[in-house]
Design a protein around this nucleic acid. Structure first.
Lengths: 336, 336
DNA sequence: CTGAAAGCGCTAACAG
DNA sequence: CTGTTAGCGCTTTCAG
């Protein structure tokens, strides 16, 4: 096994405590002693034992990040943002994949808490705060920040997009481009899905446009379901001429379905997504989208969580940050 | 703070050790006692303290996974495979992003080792085994498995693709499709890049086709560089009619460049990538590719590492697993 | 400025 | 079957 403080202490004929303090840059150690300790530590390739330290300090310098899908590049980007913020602070980020399963998510969060992470960032698959998970979370005193999705009733720290605005921005853009029959491939029944749907409806209402019930089809999260949802929309007697999709993967699937049906994008049907995932530019038809600054969401959440952790045990008043959306026009919706 | 074993022991009037053993299902505890302990533990919401346990057992049940880019869905998929295998075994996977930077990678691995992970899986950015990193890695007795990239001189555990075969498979396919002037957007100077290039050359040689030096351009890792590389190829006097790209992102960038130049895919230039990333099907032109079974690589590496960990301190003889590649033909290369 | 004592929560090894 | 003793490697507290 590698060297311990005890070894350094013995070698130098000082006490273990002196070594401990010297190594941590404690003020009441003579410059001379510190130098000797540090040198000897280097010689022995001493590496502090985090586990032993954690046992007494009750800090692990690990934070959990729970996301529903690593493969979705939106979350990968969020993860990158979180890592970029926490790395320099000396924290390890532990990523957990819930696969959109609320129970799996709850179990994973428990595991993280059992490991004494100092805090958790969660893009939750729970739709409501009345779930087992939040009871667990509240019982422990570990700070946590929710991102991207806000379960109904949730009152704590949150960082995410302005979903209603996203819906309006996208829908207004399609209207601007001259679309008259605008459909929506909606996301799951969690805040971003509902918020974007609300925005879609408001935008249509404001412009006096119809929003037939069957113009809203389920797109769920990804290209497979986007493809299916679009195929349903294509069977309607009054085919839509514009579609706002919950996110970019759904939009990619929708485009696939449209092209397969022998129609053109944006000629026959204009399409817009949300998320601005990094390959949106490379799709069949370069995809218009609403940028959500995924990595900013990650960084902001990380910053907030770091503050909560520093604040020791006095919980900070709940803080909510909403990142402004931004329209990115590419070919899939450009009609003028 | 939450309940400790001590609390359970006092409540029940037994010794701490009895509790410890009962909770771990040790055989020499009466059924009766065990039941009482387990019940009381549940009542108190007892959760074992991993940190304390680790301090004595020297096992953390954490494994590190170091990859160069989470955003590249190949690695995201590998990560998923690793997680799927280790999760049920009670391990936490800690992912670290090296951003293709060998020094950052080395530092991150040190951090992981400092945290006493039980093992590490690495898709290394090091090109040669004579780097600082491998000295560190060998000094500690923590088992590790390399994946996807094999630094020259490396002799340890490895799981990856058969890169030369990938190159041959892709190039042969282009030849089959009638391409006569086949170029290659090559990857970085690490094993997959060099292996695929070798395969490309061998395939051409076998068919007596030319491989002019300027037909090999640098594509590096991603769409940006693929785009740039392709633009260079397009300026050659004898324009290629087929391109084998290092990976799918590079191929996506190449297609973008080709279309922008007013040419068609596969009509003017057939394109094939490698990796079969999940959105390959949704690109401008659905991308032909070589499937590498990314998640199988992750799972296999995880399994191997788990064995190494179980093998206690006796290092297993180096094992190497090469996953067979598989041709996936989509539109981008279909000429017949 | 330095150090001795106590303990974080748990387990290994052995004794009853 | 149960319990005692002795740590794991470090930090906190307090006395010199």
């Amino acid at each position: 096994m590698s060297a311990r403080m005890k070894d350094i202490a013995q070698d130098l004929g000082v006490s273990l405590m002196t070594v401990s303090k010297a190594l941590r840059g404690h003020s009441d150690i003579s410059e001379e002693t510190r130098r000797r300790v540090v040198n000897r530590a280097r010689e022995l390739h001493y590496r502090p034992n985090w586990i032993a330290r954690s046992l007494v300090t009750r800090r692990t310098y690990m934070v959990g990040l729970v996301i529903p899908d690593l493969m979705h590049s939106f979350f990968a980007e969020v993860a990158k943002g979180v890592g970029r913020k926490f790395g320099p602070l000396g924290y390890q980020v532990v990523i957990s994949n819930s696969e959109e399963n609320p129970e799996a998510e709850a179990r994973q969060i428990e595991v993280l808490l059992d490991r004494n992470v100092d805090g958790v960032i969660i893009a939750s698959a729970q739709s409501h705060i009345r779930s087992e998970l939040f009871r667990i979370l509240e019982k422990r005193e570990t700070p946590y920040v929710l991102i991207d999705r806000m379960p109904t009733g949730f009152e704590g720290h949150y960082v995410g997009g302005r979903d209603e605005e996203i819906g309006m921005l996208a829908t207004n853009h399609l209207i601007d481009q001259g679309c008259k029959r605008i459909a929506h491939l909606r996301g799951p029944v969690i805040s971003p899905g509902s918020g974007r749907l609300r925005g879609y409806r408001r935008a249509l209402a404001k412009h006096g446009l119809d929003a037939p019930l069957d113009y809203v089809a389920s797109g769920l999260y990804e290209d497979g379901s986007g493809y299916e949802g679009m195929r349903k929309l294509l069977q309607l007697k009054k085919r839509p001429d514009g579609v706002f999709c919950y996110n970019d993967p759904v939009a990619a699937g929708a485009i696939k379905a449209i092209l397969e049906a022998g129609l053109t994008v944006p000629g026959d049907i204009a399409v817009i997504g949300a998320g601005n995932v990094h390959y949106s530019d490379l799709l069949r038809v370069p995809l218009s989208t609403i940028d959500q600054s995924s990595s900013v969401i990650g960084e902001t959440a990380a910053e907030l969580l770091a503050q909560c952790i520093e604040a020791a045990k006095k919980p900070l008043p709940p803080k909510r940050v909403f990142i402004a959306p931004r329209l990115v026009v590419r070919e899939s919706s450009r009609r003028k």
